[in-house]
Write a protein that binds this DNA or RNA. Structure first.
Lengths: 127, 127
DNA sequence: CCTATAGTTAGCTACATGGCTAACCAACAA
DNA sequence: TTGTTGGTTAGCCATGTAGCTAACTATAGG
């Protein structure tokens, strides 16, 4: 058993590889066997299987074997989990932006009250 | 220089490390100097700087030096870019789910209509 | 049974990554 | 000027990762 990685660590690490992202994208369109998945890639099967393994341990992909065929499918929950992280960060970020904008507004008003109003802010087109 | 990595590769790779995610989270709350950022981590500065570097080359973080202080801030665009990827995948996934649901619905209806002598096409040998 | 197919295991190499120390440079501060 | 602070460069080491080949297992088909 390996390292004590957060689930999120594993998911992002899994998605950091273009091959694995391609696999995920492919699986978004529906489940597929290992062979089918491997086909478009110019890579030896064992190498490819490692990627599948990484995706599995990250929780992004599930698979089960019936007969000699292993069928893989996406675990939507894992994807959503990662997406959540972004949305949380964005929420924090945007809250701060709001506060910042409010602050700039306040400055603007104050400055307008003092002397001649110079070109105060160079904002990149919010509002 | 090294490898030809997609921007997305770099972003996900950057976010795969808990230290770097923490930095990003911290920067969501506002810009900070390298020293301030490094403070909560029990890590030598050079090691820490490597993380900053990774974040910078991924485009997630921008920084500029004034005097002897380097101030870092988040580049919201990069974060959004990665978030987009998830949303695209989710869109594809959900479209598929919809089609699947439609298919199930159709099956259901057909099955309900069995008493009527309709010529239902057989699908994949279930029934 | 015999062969082909679909994965799997084992083991190797090359390179990337994450951490360290030591030494260095460039502002400030006294 | 001299010392201190904030960051940077250089170089080392241990571990992890991505790829390969070769050889093996197990099912499907004839």
């Amino acid at each position: 058993m390996a390292n004590q990685q957060t689930h999120l660590d594993q998911i992002f690490a899994a998605l950091a590889d273009p091959t694995r992202r391609a696999i995920v994208m492919r699986l978004c369109a529906g489940e597929a066997s290992v062979g089918e998945l491997a086909d478009p890639f110019d890579m030896a099967l064992p190498s490819f299987m490692k990627h599948i393994r990484v995706l599995q341990t990250s929780g992004l992909v599930l698979s089960e074997k019936s007969g000699r065929v292993r069928t893989c499918r996406l675990s939507p929950d894992a994807l959503l989990g990662a997406e959540d992280w972004f949305q949380q960060q964005r929420a924090i970020w945007e809250a701060r932006l709001d506060r910042f904008e409010a602050y700039v507004m306040k400055l603007k008003k104050e400055r307008a009250g003092v002397k001649r109003p110079s070109r105060t802010t160079k904002r990149k087109g919010s509002e």
